[in-house]
C-alpha cells in the first residue's frame, strides 16, 4: 500500500499559484528525491504537506497512511508519523533539546494512546540516538538550536527524526549550509533510518546530497509540477545538463 499519495495538488500563496497539479506516490520503504530550480515550489510542497498556515489548497488530495492528510492539524500530522526536517531549524531560547524532544515525543505518544516515557527512559533513548550522530551530552542539554552552527542544526534535525521515528520523513534542503563532513554525518543518520516501514522525501537543489542518500526515485519539479521522474541516474543527468535541458528556466 502506498504510504503517501498526492493527487493533482494545487496550492496558492497570497493568491499566487505555486503548486499546479503535483502527482506523487511514495511507498513504504522507498526514498524519493525531488530536485528542481529555485522557485519551482519545492519548499511549498513540504510546507503544504506539513500543514503550515498561509497556503491555500485549491485543488487535489493527499492520502497519508490511509488518512486524509489535508484535513488534519499540524500536530495531528506529526502524530500520524509525518516529519519535516527544516531547511532553517528554528531557535527556542531557554528550552533544552532534551526537554523539547521529550515533550514532543510524549505528546505524540499520548495522541497514539501510548504511555509517555519517564525522564530516565527518555534520557537513555536520546543519549543512544545522539551518540549515533556524534553529538555529546552537552549538545543535547543546550537550548534548541541556539548558538548551533549550520551543521549542528542539521544534525539536531536528524536527532529529532531518530527519536520520533516517523513513517515519512521530508528533508527540506538538508544539504544547504553543510560542509562535506557534516553532510556525511547527517546522511549517515538519515540512512540509518531507512527501512521497509519508512518512506523518505528528499528535497534538494543539488545532486551532491544524493551521493550520500541514494534515492530509489528522482523527480524533477518545475513550475509547480513534476515534469520528469526516473531512477537515481536522473540526478546525475540533471547535474550534467542543468535544468534548462528539461525546458525549465530558473525563476527569479
Amino acid at each position: 500500500m502506498s504510504l503517501i499519495e498526492i493527487k493533482n495538488l494545487h496550492a496558492t500563496v497570497d493568491g499566487k499559484a505555486i503548486l499546479k497539479g503535483v502527482d506523487l506516490t511514495i511507498n513504504a520503504g522507498e526514498v524519493h528525491a525531488i530536485m528542481g530550480p529555485n522557485g519551482a515550489g519545492k519548499s511549498t510542497l513540504s510546507y503544504v504537506l506539513a500543514g503550515r498556515e498561509g497556503y491555500e489548497i485549491t485543488e487535489g488530495s493527499v492520502t497519508f497512511d490511509g488518512q486524509d492528510l489535508l484535513s488534519m492539524e499540524i500536530e495531528e500530522r506529526a502524530a500520524a508519523g509525518l516529519f519535516l526536517a527544516f531547511q532553517y531549524p528554528v531557535e527556542i531560547p531557554g528550552v533544552s533539546n532534551t526537554t523539547f524532544l521529550k515533550e514532543a515525543l510524549n505528546a505524540i505518544r499520548k495522541t497514539r494512546g501510548e504511555t509517555p516515557l519517564d525522564a530516565m527512559q527518555f534520557l537513555k533513548l536520546i543519549r543512544a540516538k545522539a551518540k549515533d550522530l556524534s553529538m555529546n551530552d552537552e549538545m543535547i542539554k543546550r537550548a534548541v538550536n541556539v548558538g548551533f552552527s549550520g551543521g549542528e542544526k542539521k544534525r539536531n534535525e536528524a536527532l529529532q527524526m531518530a527519536v520520533l521515528q516517523p513513517k515519512l520523513a521530508i528533508l527540506d534542503e538538508t544539504d544547504s549550509g553543510l560542509d562535506i563532513d557534516a553532510l556525511k554525518i547527517v546522511a549517515e543518520g538519515v540512512n540509518r533510518l531507512r527501512g521497509p516501514e519508512r518512506g523518505m522525501l528528499v528535497i534538494t537543489h543539488y545532486q551532491r546530497l544524493l551521493d550520500y542518500i541514494v534515492p530509489d526515485v528522482v523527480h524533477v519539479l518545475a513550475n509547480g509540477r513534476i515534469v520528469k521522474s526516473g531512477g537515481k541516474e536522473l540526478a546525475l543527468e540533471l547535474e550534467a545538463k542543468g535544468y534548462a535541458e528539461f525546458g525549465v528556466t530558473e525563476a527569479a
Binding site: A50, G51, R52, E53, E73, I74, E75, R77, A78, A79, F83, L84, F86, P89, V90, E91, I92, P93, G94, V95, T99, F100, L101, E103, A104, L105, A107, I108, T111, A143, Q160, L164
Partner: peptide
C-alpha cells in the same frame, strides 16, 4: 514567532503547549 509555533507543532506539540514551552524557556 509563527516559525517557532510551526516548528513545535510539526514535532507534535499542541499550539497551547508550544506557547507554554516557549514562554517557560523565556522565563527559565
Amino acid at each position: 514567532s509563527e516559525d517557532q509555533l510551526f516548528y513545535c507543532r510539526q514535532r507534535g506539540l499542541k499550539e497551547e503547549d508550544a506557547v507554554g514551552l516557549i514562554v517557560n524557556g523565556f522565563c527559565k
